[in-house]
Design a protein around this nucleic acid. Sequence first.
RNA 1: GGAGAGUUGGCAGAGUGGUCGAAUGCGGUGGUCUUGAAAACCAUUGUGCGGCAACGUACCGGGGGUUCGAAUCCCUCACUCUCCGCCA
Length: 423
Amino acid sequence: MLQINKLRENIEGAIELLKVRNKDFTSEINGILSADDKRKASQSELDSVLAESNRLSKEIGDLFKSGKAAEASVLKQETVLLKEQSHALKEEMIEAEEEIKRLLYIVPNIPHVDVPTGKDDSDNKKIDEEGTIPNLHAEALPHWEIADKYGLIDFELGVKISGAGFPVYRGKGAKLQRALINFFLDEATEAGYEEVILPHLVNEASGIATGQLPDKEGQMYHTEVDNLYLIPTGEVPITNIFRDVIIKEIEFSHKLCGYTPCFRREAGSYGKEVRGLNRLHQFDKVEIVRVEHPENSYVVLDDMVEHVKSLLRKLELPFRTLRLCGGDLGFTAALTYDLEVYSAAQKRWLEVSSISNFETYQSNRLKLRFKNKEGKTQLAHTLNGSALALPRILAALLENNQDEKGVRIPEALVKYTGFDYLD
RNA sequence: GGAGAGUUGGCAGAGUGGUCGAAUGCGGUGGUCUUGAAAACCAUUGUGCGGCAACGUACCGGGGGUUCGAAUCCCUCACUCUCCGCCA
C-alpha cells in the first residue's frame, strides 16, 4: 500500500501517474488524506486526555500512600469524565484508521513514469525480440499432442485424480520437468541467489503482507479447518521471510530463489486459452526475489530481466520482452517486464515470466525496513520475477524443437535430463 | 488427539497492581587507552504515532475485561515447549 506521507509530498503527481491505469483515484486519495487528518486530530486530543489521566492516576497513588484517602477519592471523580472522553476519542481514531486502511487497500501502486499508456495486453510495449522462430514441418503438432504421442504428460489421468488443470507428468516428461527445475535453480544460484525451500501453505498474515489478501481471495485455494492458503506463487512465502524485519543498510542486497509448486483456482478461465499446459491449477515455478535499497532497485530490475533472458537464450527459445502498459500492470507493481516465448505450433506468444519492481508498496505492508545513514528506518524496495514458470516453457520446447521423428532437447538441459532426444 | 508449562527489548533473563519502556548479562554502536588489535573502562543502544522541538502517547504474543492506575489480576484466541498416544 501507498505511504501517506509520500503521497502528501506530491498529491497531484500521484493522481496524474495513477491515471495511466485508466482510472481516476482522486476521490480515494482525498479520502485517505482527510481521514488521515481526522486521525491525527483525534490522536492529538486523545494523547492529551491520556496525559492528564496518567497524571491524575499518579497523584491518586501518591495520596493513597500518604494516607489522604478522602482527597484521592475526589480526584477519582475527575478521572471518570476523562475516561469517557478517551473512549470516545479512541473510537474516533479507530474509525479514521479503518477508513484509511479501507481506501489504501483499493488504491494500487503508483506506476513508474516509464509505464506506457494502454488499455490491455495488446498495448504492452515491445522492448526487444530475440531468437529465430522455427519453420515447422507440415505435420507439426501442438504440445498437448506431442506430450500425448511420446507419453510425457497424461492430462486425462490428472482429471481422474484431481480435475482439469492438474496434469500428470510421466517418465521422460517427469524427468524433463525435474531437469528444468534443477537447471533454473542452478542458474539462479550461480547468479548469486540463495536457494530456499519454504512452506507451500501460508497463513492469513502472509497473504495480506504480499497483497493476495484481501483483494484476491478468490484466486487462492483455502483450507477451511486450519485457515491456511495454498500459495499461488513462491513470492508469498519467500517475500514473507522479510515481514516485520528491519535490516541494516550494509546488508543489502538480499537475493533469494526458490522452487515451489503454485496453486491457482483460475475461476472463470476456459477455452483454447487453457488448452494443454497454457493455464493450470497446479504448476511449477522457480521464483527470484530481491530486497534492495531504493536507490538501486531499477538497476536491479534490469539485472533480473537480464538473468531471465539468459535462461531463455540457453534454452534456445525465441522470446520478446514487453513493458506492461498501465491497463495490464498488476495492482502492486510500479513497473513490470513480461517475457514471452514463441510457441511455434500454437503460433502464440506465451508469457513465461513477469518481473516487477514493487518499490515500497509491498514493503509497507510487510513492514520491511532498513536503517538509513541518518539512523532512521526507511522502507526497502522489493522485486520479484519468475525464473521461470515451467509449463509454458515446456510447451514451447516441445513445439519448437519437434521434427518428424521426435523432439530435440536443448544442449543446456541434456546434462540434467540424461537424454537429448524424445521419441 | 490427551495432560501440563510457557510467550517480556537483537538474544538470554528479572519483574510485589502505582516510582516499569521495563533490572541484569550478552550482543551492537561511539569513545578512552594502544603503533594497531584484544582486554579493560566510559557512554549509548526498541518500534509506531503526534510535534519544528521540548515533549506527549501507545506497545511486555493477539483481542477483550476489572481498576483512579495492569507486563503484573480475570476471560478468550493464537502460538511455542515438555510428557503420553499416533505416525512419514
